[in-house]
């Protein structure tokens, strides 16, 4: 048996690349993190920083041109990367489920919504009879705030918010230990976004489930996660307790991300966008990949990759952390 205090998920030195016509693109570089049972982790960063690649890697749903060059993904101490496809198939949804990025089209248009959830329950033998499976779906529907009678409807009869709730119910259907929520609310309107986010948080605490939130929206991650990892160009550049990271970001990129989103409750301040463009993954600059867009960049940033340093409860990879006085070399 595994100990309650062992991490549920341990990602160790994960590296992933895609073979393209323009050459090899390193999407994920040496990423390591741990996720405790029942806690929520956030991964933030711009488009193309490798967030979704990590999610697909955890589900092992990678396109044919992807290549895992290094690393381990330990779920309860078991490395899932070398598993046979059939074993991995049985593990999907039962242990790790996913709320997809483009939730609008995740439901198959030709089947009733309830049927699609029962399909997952049947595949994994979570309930032994059809009646029990239907009751389970009804229970899940109530949990996510949908009328159980809606399970007899087709996806096109659902609104965007309802579909997203149904997709969340589907992700919860096999009692997974870990749920990956990839931009779970991006396509919804703001009021529904907030409500669904709060419900997700409540469900997570109620079921004692772990969640990985993947978002470009720092406000979402700040609201619902315990730990946050900031990604840039396929690497984690800063990671730590969510409140600490956002209270005192060490990496200039984290600070820049924060200042490009408005805060409702915080003080009034002008928004500053991030200058420049997201990095070209197949042709990264030397040294710290963020240096062309960084206001604090010096010569050392242009030539050498910075070391990882600990600042209170979080760590960052930067030559010139914003609050250098707090720096404690790890």
């Amino acid at each position: 048996m595994t100990d309650r205090h062992d991490p549920l998920l341990k990602v160790d030195g994960l590296s992933l690349s895609y073979q393209t016509r323009l050459g090899e693109v390193q999407a994920v570089r040496n990423v390591s993190f741990e996720l405790a049972r029942g806690s929520a982790l956030g991964l933030v960063g711009e488009s193309g920083c490798g967030k979704t690649s990590i999610a697909n890697c955890l589900m092992r749903l990678l396109p044919d041109n992807a290549r895992l060059s290094a690393g381990r993904v330990l779920l309860d101490g078991q490395d899932i990367l070398p598993l046979a496809e059939e074993d991995m198939r049985l593990l999907r949804w039962r242990r790790i489920s996913m709320v997809f990025q483009a939730a609008m089209n995740v439901l198959d248009p030709v089947y009733r919504v309830g049927r699609q959830i029962i399909e997952a329950i049947e595949t994994h033998g979570v309930e032994s009879t059809d009646t029990a499976a239907r009751e389970r779906v009804a229970r899940l529907f109530r949990m996510v705030g949908l009328d159980p009678q809606l399970m007899e409807r087709y996806p096109h009869e659902f609104s965007g918010g309802m579909r997203q709730r149904a997709v969340i119910a589907m992700a919860l259907s096999c009692d997974p230990d870990l749920m990956i929520a990839d931009e779970p609310i991006t396509a919804l309107d703001v009021i529904v976004q907030d409500r669904i986010l709060r419900e997700l948080k409540a469900i997570q605490q109620q079921l004692d489930m772990s969640i990985i939130y993947i978002s470009h929206d720092i406000a979402v991650v700040a609201e619902v996660t315990d730990v946050v990892g900031v990604m840039y160009a396929g690497r984690l550049v800063e990671m730590g307790d969510t409140s600490d990271v956002f209270r005192a970001p060490a990496h200039p990129y984290t600070a820049a991300l924060m200042s490009s989103f408005p805060s409702v409750s915080g003080e009034r301040r002008p928004l500053t966008g991030l200058p420049g463009e997201p990095p070209n993954l197949s042709d990264l600059p030397q040294g710290c990949p963020f240096h062309p867009r960084c206001a604090y960049a010096t010569d050392v940033c242009r030539t050498q990759y910075p070391p990882q340093a600990r600042y209170g409860s979080h760590w960052a990879v930067c030559w010139h952390p914003l609050d250098a006085t707090m720096a404690v070399q790890s």
């Binding site: 997809f100 439901l107 198959d108 997952a120 589907m170």
Partner: peptide
């Protein structure tokens, strides 16, 4: 389509993903 990806993520056997979701649509 996303629903084919979702069917695979749900852990459905390859043949069901193909016939029940991809080919059916």
């Amino acid at each position: 389509e996303d629903y084919v990806m979702a069917a695979r993520a749900k852990g459905l056997p390859d043949k069901l993903v193909r016939d029940r979701h991809a080919a059916r649509n």
